[in-house]
Design a binder for these strands. Structure first.
Length: 274
DNA sequence: CCGGAGACCTGATAGC
DNA sequence: TGCTATCAGGTCTCCG
């Protein structure tokens, strides 16, 4: 579910957690991504800590505390972070609950591909999940020039390139197809074919696609909701993702679906030139 | 270095 | 109704 716009939407709706003091910690004991369990003992040391900020890098959330430790959260495919009243029933597949006054911060994840960990503030980069991340996809530094310079060091496809979290952090399978359609570039085109002109188009398209999705509160295909439980509207505005057989919104050619690296890929065979 | 396939999980949906 | 197969926003690892 969650790519940069969805995670950023969660980050923004987590604002009420800032200033909250962690009064209790509960974990389900079940393993998440790579069978890693949320570290119960380290989490319990955060009882008494106050959440001071909620940050995001790519698809990762970082909740800073005044105990020099931060919570690291990744939503995987079906992860949710909710702020709910203590009296609200817990969702199924709830794996972490932090008491925050009258409310609770709850992490649930049906498929358990998500991550919930603790990192030392200032040493985030030493966490294996964050060590290799490239600049955030909405970082101003990621302009056409930077994109082109990185692309020239690779021989991969454009689809794999924009999905590579070490190139840029935050683009996932939906927005990869969307951005390449917007930039009129074929997903299978090799990165070293990028030019100053097409790199500029791609950089602009990535930014546009992500910001537009963010304006719409993210894309909800089935699972995604923000910290308030609200679904996103962006599924109504997708240009190609999930639209195979339907007419291209630019040229009316039926949209094609193919599989690249095991992931569904959508493109217009006419106006996305190879 | 790169792509493909499979692994990790559960739930929704389609088809018989 | 119930069974089976397929698919899903992500990441990681093995293999050729």
């Amino acid at each position: 579910m969650p790519e940069l716009p969805e995670v950023e939407t969660v980050r923004r709706t987590l604002a009420p957690a800032v200033g909250g003091r962690i009064s209790s910690v509960w974990t389900s004991g079940m393993g998440l991504h790579m069978a890693r369990k949320p570290p119960a003992a380290r989490l319990r040391k955060l009882v008494g800590a106050t959440i001071t900020a909620v940050r995001r890098h790519g698809k990762y959330l970082l909740l800073d505390t005044d105990h020099a430790m931060s919570l690291l959260i990744h939503l995987g495919m079906t992860g949710r972070v909710r702020i709910q009243a203590k009296a609200e029933p817990r969702a199924s597949h709830t794996h972490v609950v932090l008491g925050l006054g009258e409310r609770e911060l709850r992490f649930s994840d049906a498929r358990r591909f998500g991550q919930f960990d603790v990192v030392v503030r200032g040493q985030e980069r030493e966490h294996p999940a964050l060590a290799l991340l490239g600049p955030d996809a909405l970082d101003d530094a990621l302009d056409a020039g930077a994109l082109l310079a990185t692309a020239r060091t690779k021989r991969t496809t454009l689809k794999a390139f924009v999905l590579d979290q070490s190139v840029m952090a935050g683009v996932g399978n939906i927005y990869a197809s969307e951005a390449l359609w917007r930039a009129k570039l074929r997903p299978t085109t090799r990165t070293h074919k990028l030019t100053a002109v097409t790199a500029k188009r791609l950089a602009a398209a990535i930014r546009e696609v992500l910001e537009r999705a963010l304006d719409n509160g993210g894309t909800t295909l089935s699972d995604f909701v923000d910290a308030d439980g609200t679904a996103g509207e962006n599924a109504d505005y997708l240009w190609v993702y999930g639209r195979s057989g339907e007419p291209c919104l630019r040229c009316k050619t039926p949209i094609k679906r193919s599989v690249l690296q095991g992931r569904a890929t959508f493109y217009c065979p006419t106006c996305q030139t190879p």
